[in-house]
């Protein structure tokens, strides 16, 4: 089992602040790697940098995906190379049906696969396929449709940005099962979350704080550290202040 994604010495600056600083990580193929961290740790920014979104061009560093440097590639090029992202708060699309939305990323478009993807996220295809992906959907429904759409793509690497946020407790079990199904189908999962009960399904976990990985290990180890240390930490929510401290200590 090799490395599918490598990030080397990555810096992302927004204004005068470093959101991500000296970031290094290796993600192994066909595993569920979890990035755990408090709100404001830079997790979503990391997802956007990896996907190459506008406004998230790194100031320094390299992103190597399947052995190729994609640091300067467009979003489309990254997607065509086999990477995709499920947004924490997905966009709405007036006029686009759920079926059309899911089919966009599919290599072989078929009604069967659309239905299968919706069933994976516990949505009844009969009720949802012809609905429109707009604000008439609840946040939880929209989120599940986003996950169904990325599932239908069969990506090599899927970045799931807080797939558990806005999801009720009962649906959470479906989401956890879906994440395991991604792996079963050959996808590598980079799971971003701040909930340790979701992190437990991972194979490996990384703790992110103030734009850096500060610890790595098994999900159980990292979850324990997260619960014991991060909840007490005084720099929660003020990453730039803490980062300045870290830089001074270096």
């Amino acid at each position: 089992m090799g490395t599918i994604l490598e990030i080397e010495d990555l810096d992302l600056k927004k204004g005068n602040k470093y959101i991500i600083k000296d970031f290094n990580i290796e993600i192994e193929q066909n595993l569920i790697s979890v990035i755990l961290g408090v709100n404001g740790a830079g997790k979503s920014s990391l997802a956007y940098v990896l996907m190459g979104l506008s406004g998230y061009k790194p100031e320094r560093g390299k992103i190597i995906f399947k052995g190729k440097d994609i640091t300067n590639c467009s979003v489309t090029e990254r997607a065509k190379a086999g990477m995709t992202l499920a947004w924490q708060t997905p966009a709405n699309f007036e006029g686009l049906t759920v079926r059309e939305y899911i089919e966009i990323g599919m290599k072989n478009k078929s009604l069967f696969s659309v239905k299968e993807a919706l069933e994976k996220v516990a949505l009844d295809p009969v009720l949802y396929m012809n609905r429109v992906v707009d604000k008439s959907l609840s946040g939880g429904e929209r989120k599940r449709i986003e996950l169904a759409a990325v599932y239908a793509m069969h990506p090599d690497l899927v970045i799931l940005d807080e797939p558990d946020s806005g999801i009720d407790i009962l649906s959470l079990e479906n989401i956890k099962k879906l994440i395991l199904d991604f792996k079963e189908n050959g996808s590598t999962v980079l799971l971003i979350t701040h909930r340790d009960e979701v992190a437990e399904i991972g194979d490996k976990a990384f703790l992110m704080c103030n734009g850096k990985i500060i610890n790595e290990g098994s999900p159980a180890e990292i979850s324990d550290f997260f619960k014991d240390e991060c909840s007490k930490c005084d720099h929660k929510g003020a990453p730039e202040k803490s980062l300045a401290k870290n830089e001074r200590s270096e």
């Binding site: 979104l53 489309t76 995709t84 966009a91 686009l96 966009i104």
Partner: peptide
């Protein structure tokens, strides 16, 4: 831009994504 980039993350080019978004809006 979030709509466009979402569709790009599914593999569409920017122009293809714009066409889908506009086409849906006017459907």
């Amino acid at each position: 831009s979030k709509e466009i980039e979402t569709l790009q993350a599914r593999g569409l080019t920017e122009e293809e994504a714009i066409k889908v978004v506009v086409g849906a809006l006017l459907k």
